[in-house]
Design a protein around this nucleic acid. Structure first.
Lengths: 334, 334
DNA sequence: GTCCAATAAGACACCGTTGTCATATGGGAG
DNA sequence: CTCCCATATGACAACGGTGTCTTATTGGAC
């Protein structure tokens, strides 16, 4: 029924082992033989069974992408980046959502690896910092690369951007526009990036000689509602901020929305900045000034490192960019 | 190194075939034996190799989800729905992005099936209507279920919502608010849903005795920019509409954005309605009146049908809902 | 007491590849 | 001319499970 390597070998007039050699681009195959095999493969439209290759060989031609992130945009971009690199390599990507707070996290990841024999794993933030996940992967001595890890940098290769510097850059941009009272909305406490962005904000203020005021800093959870709530709290202060920097775009959209609701004009009455540059940033009014995080590129680079033969641990930093759009403006003289 | 069924059989003191029986919940295993095996499985933390099961058996415990949709929100919801049902079934989901306009589409899908031996396939719109994809799946006699197909309904089981009725309902809602000149932004011509929503709009107008005016209908491609362009065209008409119904949320966000840009107040000067109820609908100002499309539920139901033993072709319609939010208001008397 | 069907469990081939080892050939160094 | 190594190919076992067939062992009907 199914076309197998035997059919190919019969048509090409060689042994199955030789077909296998051609398939795996091994040395010691003559050009004539190679061509015969390739022709037979094309003629029969043969695709080797991954199951058989996995069972017999030492690779499975599959890698897993493990994530627990509730931003569809982020996940989508990560999947795209990983997939693009996988496709070049002829490797399948298994996208695996998990819950990092689940007590069975390690079991799930272990089961995934046992069942699928994946050749490697990409960990997307915040799974990058789940101790149970890291321990399990270490225990199995499986190769893995992390995208934007927050802790334990020495553990594995990773790719990331400089969240501290990026938040510093954005804050500095606002300061340069004359703002002195700048509100900040912190991200979800599960994400290490939240803390880093918070620190970048503080560092920029410090360098500019502006006092850090706790009342200008509000907790958030990276979602729209928490941005709105934070905006409400900040704008009800007696001495309210002239700009609000939310540490992701969803929360910035929440700030924007609250501002509209109470009749504030953005950016004339209030400047608003976000972080991530998700497509959302350009789907709101006014379009958000935000930090572009190169998610697709990060995912692509991480996958590339996984495929890289060299087992050395490499840390690769990709460049962020401050995208200035309509939601920020110089401080109005009052 | 790896824990195999042999290790389990040794610990449990039974043959590997008996372990296999327990794993597959077959009949004719005594309770005592079953318990012994289960204990050994737990003790060794054994997960059977999917590769071996696939090769030896008649199932692969994997299904493929094939999509080509550029809306991250939509894909994310579909993946979640499919994944949720798969997890219950102990089956892995292979998420496979494709390009429906690629000349190698059939080859790619064929290769995927040959390589992975998937037990079934879920097709997400608009791959549901790509003739090359359908023909390839038919040829291989592989079971597949479609989510929101636009054509060829008799071919397979499917789940969908009534796009015509939904667009009709939304248009009727606007008419009930007093609007008579209602602009419409058509979706991407690749998607059958575009045509259906367009027809629903027209049907509602017709029933209300309002003339269908081609100048009020603009082409779009389901993205923000095309929504903005359509809004510009519509609002520059001599006799401009008092409401615009964009056939998805991204385009509605574009309409909103253009309206803001030219200083129109929504909904006082212009009502805007969308379609899909993606999270975006609540991340813009004002929040969008839109049609809720039950994407997660559709995906879940489709996967459920795939797992359903009964091979009968079933068509399942899920209910939509008009979500009235802040972007629409009764027509102002002028 | 005999027979048969239902229950319970094992032996063994097989799925479609790759890894290992054996074998054959050709050409350059000595 | 011999020897050896690089090149080229094949035979065969192995990977870790499931399908099929065979072989006990019950227990109820006659």
């Amino acid at each position: 029924m199914r076309v197998t390597i035997k059919d190919v070998s019969r048509i090409a007039g060689v042994s199955i082992k030789t077909v296998s050699r051609v398939l795996n681009k091994e040395k010691y195959v003559s050009d004539i033989t190679r061509r015969k095999v390739e022709e037979a493969v094309t003629a029969l439209n043969f695709s080797p069974s991954l199951a058989a290759r996995t069972l017999a060989g030492s690779r499975s031609f599959q890698i897993a992408l493990i994530y627990d992130n509730h931003s569809p945009y982020y996940i989508h971009a990560v999947q795209e980046g990983v997939w693009n690199r996988c496709r070049e390599e002829g490797v399948r990507m298994l996208a695996q959502p998990v819950d990092i707070d689940s007590p069975t996290l390690a079991l799930e990841i272990g089961g995934l690896i046992d069942e699928t024999h994946v050749d490697g794993v990409i960990l997307s933030s915040p799974v990058t910092d789940a101790p149970a996940a890291l321990a399990e992967l270490e225990r199995r001595r499986i190769r893995f690369v992390r995208i934007s890890p927050g802790t334990n940098h020495a553990l594995t290769s990773s790719v990331f951007m400089d969240d501290v510097q990026a938040a510093d850059d954005m804050t500095t941009h606002l300061i340069n526009q004359g703002h002195r009272r700048i509100g900040f909305v912190v991200g979800h406490p599960n994400h290490m990036a939240s803390d880093q962005r918070h620190f970048g904000y503080r560092r920029a203020l410090d360098r500019a000689g502006i006092a850090y005021e706790p009342e200008l800093v509000r907790p958030g959870t990276f979602d729209f509602e928490s941005g709105m709530a934070a905006a409400e709290a900040l704008l009800k202060l007696a001495n309210k901020p002239s700009a609000i920097f939310a540490s992701n775009d969803d929360m910035a959209a929440g700030v924007l929305s609250y501002a509209h609701r109470v009749g504030l004009d953005v950016p004339q009455d209030l400047s608003v900045a976000g972080f991530d540059d998700t497509p959302l940033a350009q789907l709101v009014w006014p379009p958000l000034t935000t930090v572009r995080q190169p998610v697709r590129e990060l995912a692509y680079a991480a996958t590339n490192q996984l495929f890289c033969a060299d087992p050395a641990i490499v840390h690769q930093r990709l460049q962020h960019e401050v995208m200035v759009r309509g939601s920020t403006a110089p401080l109005r003289k009052s």
